[in-house]
Write a protein that binds this DNA or RNA. Structure first.
Lengths: 355, 355
DNA sequence: GTGAAAGCGCTAACAT
DNA sequence: ATGTTAGCGCTTTCAC
């Protein structure tokens, strides 16, 4: 593609025999400009399809009105929701969005930070990769007070920057409480890997709900699904079904595991939710299409994106540097579905799981 | 956030008492530079965390090494795959990706084009909104030879720009042929809305496969699901099941419809795929989590993104303007699943559905 | 091998 | 109301 020279303010100025600054003023609707010149300028600009050059503006103003986003994977229901939320808010505020995916690799994450800083993004929104345990590449951005940063979902333990996270503990508590309300006597938990904070929080929520109802969480009703696959969910649920105390309710760490559990339940000839009620903490929209009876706690991806974006816009526009931001904790929403998918829409209830 | 002045080449030059141009040369590994100065410059640059300013470079070089992407919705399995594919290739080639979503609105699409052109993206990748029937806002970009454009998925009928589309006809043909091979005698089609090209192509593929097998497509086995919801799929499948000729195979326009159909089949007490085999043309990854027995024709989202990106990079870098690009047609892939989800992974076969 | 100067497109301060 | 000028950060001639 041969390089195209586009129309500039100077071209317009020459055509009309006036100064570039006058053209600039006319174009930006400055008050101290005669209507005639303004109209003439507008006419020429239109005739030649003048497009203002944001690059020149960025260089002059030292701001790009561009936000950088680093995300582990784009192809993921939760993350794509986050992106969408960010894009929505950014767009509404006249900001553009530059996206990099780290592919859960620290190396790529570091490279992405560098790329975006070179591009002079006005702010950086980041969800760290699973590999990331050390945050200097973000925390020690050039000059130590570089670009404003907002973390979401996977956040460093000690950072002064804003953080947006989901209230997993509360969500899990509500989900378990819901099973209790439904009359479940023996509620099992198919937990996620112990090393992940979210798994631990969800387990805690489960325990808390039971204790609040005056019950003791039983060790034999808690199974860890380290790999987090449908297969493991199936296997662990089978174990549960072969124990003495058969659970009549299951809270699963996520919907993938929940799906495996449901397969095991059905294979046993039991009915959902009549015999065993199931509820899954969900990253995906799957629940919508899954078996009826699968209620779920949904991660508020879009809302998280919106909040993160709003947060960084405030950060960018705040004049005095803020010393420390306390984390913003978003509630998950508990979606309760009835047992007939045909009448599903009428039966969906959304509870606000947070406080 | 108070505006931060970052380190420039001039700062380094001053510190060392040399000319900015020398610093520039040292930094960019120019040959005609003494090793001592180079080392000195590098040292200072490192000490002060110098970050080159891409904005200044863009202004000078008249290229941003940035690509613009306009997409109807980010939260969509197919589209998020496309984005991911584009990001991957762009990144690998040193390009950044600026994303706007149109939300299926022509108005927002027009605004997005304008935004991206102002940002001086080097190229524009676009999937038009459902509302878009007139393409001047893209085709007549400033100066008529403006930014390189590549269309994908939803493309204008007559554009000289590159277009990447999916071979729906071939995919549908393969899917239907697969049902025939499986021994299905009466294969129904749950079609999409007639006004969409993809629906028409899939219907044609279905017809073609039957004809190739020496069968006549029967009108009573074709049902249009205008709304494309699970509910409609359920209703239309019920109609089919209550007709004289009960189908033993169903090719559904997409997986949402397929899901409804499967619910209807199961409610009737029939088994999938033993009694009725089902296959859906899929935009989503749902099939992975759906009932066993649901084979699907998957849209190659990531591949489409990669191709689109590669295509625009070539376009950008080609010196002589190309007169007309013929469409690039990607095959969909037919994924055949067995009936036991537990053994699923072993039984998945992927056939290349294109020619 | 290095320096000086021009220029990419734009705007804001300072004239007039 | 309009023109002049300088400068944002960088590279790239053209001198020396």
């Amino acid at each position: 593609m041969s390089k195209r020279r586009s129309i500039t303010i100077i071209d317009i100025a020459k055509e009309l025999g006036i100064a570039p600054s006058t053209v600039s003023r006319a174009l930006s609707g400055h008050s101290k400009i005669s209507p005639e010149t303004r109209d003439k300028v507008m006419a020429v600009a239109k005739k030649w399809n003048y497009v203002p050059n944001k690059i020149a503006l960025s260089l002059k103003n030292q701001e790009t009105r561009t936000l950088g986003l680093i995300i582990p994977e784009i192809v993921h229901y939760f993350f794509s929701n986050v992106i969408s939320g960010i894009e929505e808010v950014a767009n509404k505020n006249g900001y553009s969005l530059l996206i990099c995916q780290s592919g859960e690799s620290l190396e790529r994450e570091i490279k992405a930070v560098s790329t975006l800083v070179r591009q002079r993004v006005d702010g950086l929104i980041i969800c760290c990769s699973r590999e990331t345990e050390e945050f200097d590449h973000v925390e020690k951005l050039p000059e130590n007070k570089g670009v404003p940063v907002v973390y979401f979902d996977r956040v460093p333990p000690n950072s002064k920057h804003p953080k947006i996270i989901v209230d997993d503990l509360m969500g899990a508590k509500q989900a378990t409480a819901h099973l209790i309300e439904q009359g479940c006597k023996n509620i099992a938990h198919l937990a996620g890997p112990e090393n992940l904070l979210i798994s631990r929080n969800r387990l805690s929520g489960y325990r808390l709900a039971l204790q609040n109802a005056g019950r003791q969480p039983k060790t034999e009703l808690i199974k860890y699904c380290k790999e987090g696959t449908t297969e493991v969910g199936f296997a662990k649920m089978n174990e549960l079904l072969n124990q003495e105390v058969i659970p009549d309710g299951v809270f699963a760490n996520n919907d993938i595991i929940a799906l495996g559990a449901m397969m095991a339940i059905k294979k046993k000839g039991l009915k959902i939710p009549e015999d065993v009620a199931v509820i899954g903490y969900s990253n995906w929209q799957l629940s919508e299409f899954m078996e009826p009876g699968l209620s779920s706690v949904n991660q508020p991806g879009a809302e998280m994106g919106e909040q993160a974006c709003q947060c960084i816009l405030n950060y960018i526009e705040s004049d005095e540097p803020v010393e420390f931001f306390s984390p913003i904790i978003l509630p998950s929403s508990l979606v309760i579905r009835g047992s007939s998918l045909r009448k599903r829409s009428a039966q969906i209830k959304v509870l606000n799981a947070g406080g």
